[in-house]
């Protein structure tokens, strides 16, 4: 028997039996599969058994999938690692060049900067939405606002990309970036000619895309803050905003952090929308208004034309992306652990 120990062992008399219920012990135990099945049914163990094994196999399948995907990436990427080696550390990704160059660093850089910037832009907005939804908005506003936000999550990323190409990018190019260059150009972050298809455009689009995820989870986190915590602040004479700042946000900080990490994961993995607005230039950038590229968007752009070493190099890029995501996750978990230890609650 490998299931969890039942609360009432099936062989024992039922707990409500008392002195009159002892007949269950007198009959000889039934033998064979039928008896086992009957006993299992009587003790409601069959349902448990099925349920436990179903959920267990689901967990096994997931682990198997991850292991399988990583293994096949490694096998397919191995020739590229052997052939290219330290060439992956080069400053340029140019598979069609003579000789072909496979520097992955600009792509890693592009991935990290777009995702990080998206987080920087999107998370404060998402937190603001979550605070409004859980604390400040009257109930009449809450439901419609929630639905609108959740609709944002239902839009396919290719539609975001389309909107990015034809509306967002031209708008930013004509109305926002000239101003940015004029006022913040001295920082060097906004140099060069602004075509609209750039790191910043991709980051803004990504920020919009992660807002629904981050705000929905944050809203649940904030709603889970106990009434007692809010009342503690209210009784001290806190205004609604002070209640949020003093009791709600600190209590929920590890959950809010988790919500941001999920947003980051979405931003790092997003392909289509980024490919459509980032400009697809496989080199390092220093200005946020320059075109660039990310690992997912290189994969999407090149996978159907690649063969031989190039194809294998794309698999290697997949491994690199996986490692980047893994590293970020590990750091996030460590940070979360520290937050929880200091906060002494989940």
């Amino acid at each position: 028997m490998d299931g969890p120990t039942p609360i009432f062992p099936t062989d024992a008399p039922p707990p409500s039996g008392g002195p009159l219920g002892s007949s269950a012990q007198e009959g000889s135990p039934r033998k064979g599969l039928r008896g086992l099945l009957l006993r299992a049914l009587r003790g409601r163990r069959l349902g448990d058994l099925v349920f436990v094994n179903l959920t267990r196999s689901a967990a096994v399948v997931v682990v198997g999938l991850v292991v399988g995907i990583v293994a096949s990436l490694m096998i397919s990427g191995k020739p590229a690692f052997e052939a290219i080696g330290s060439g992956f550390l080069g400053p340029e990704w140019l598979p069609g060049g003579q000789p072909p160059r496979y520097g992955a660093l600009p792509l890693v850089w592009g991935t990290l900067v777009t995702a990080g910037l998206a987080l920087l832009l999107g998370v404060p907005v998402a937190f603001g939405i979550a605070i409004v939804l859980s604390e400040l908005a009257p109930p009449v506003v809450r439901t419609p606002l929630s639905i609108v936000i959740e609709l944002l999550a239902a839009i396919p990323s290719v539609v975001y990309g389309l909107w990015g190409i034809f509306i967002l990018a031209p708008f930013l190019r004509d109305s926002v970036y000239p101003g940015l260059q004029a006022t913040w150009g001295w920082t060097g972050l906004f140099g060069g000619a602004a075509s609209g298809y750039s790191v910043l455009t991709a980051a803004i689009l990504l920020a919009i895309m992660i807002i629904p995820t981050v705000s929905a989870i944050s809203r649940e986190v904030l709603r889970a803050v106990p009434v007692a915590q809010r009342e503690a602040a209210l009784a001290l004479g806190a205004t609604p905003w002070e209640v949020v700042r003093m009791a709600v946000l600190p209590y929920g900080r590890s959950g809010l952090f988790g919500a941001s990490v999920l947003g980051l994961a979405r931003a790092i993995g997003e392909t289509m929308a980024v490919t459509m607005v980032i400009g697809n230039r496989n080199a390092f950038f220093s200005s946020l208004l320059q075109p660039a590229n990310t690992i997912p968007s290189v994969l999407a752009n090149e996978v159907f034309e690649a063969s031989g070493t190039h194809l294998s190099a794309l698999f290697a890029l997949g491994i690199i992306l996986f490692l980047v995501a893994l590293t970020i996750n590990i750091f996030a978990q460590l940070l979360l652990l520290r937050l929880r230890r200091r906060g002494a609650h989940a």
Binding site: A235, A247, Y251
Partner: peptide, 12 residues
Amino acid sequence: GMVFQKPNPFPT
């Protein structure tokens, strides 16, 4: 001032 049934210090 007010004090409640269950102690509710701010955990952070």
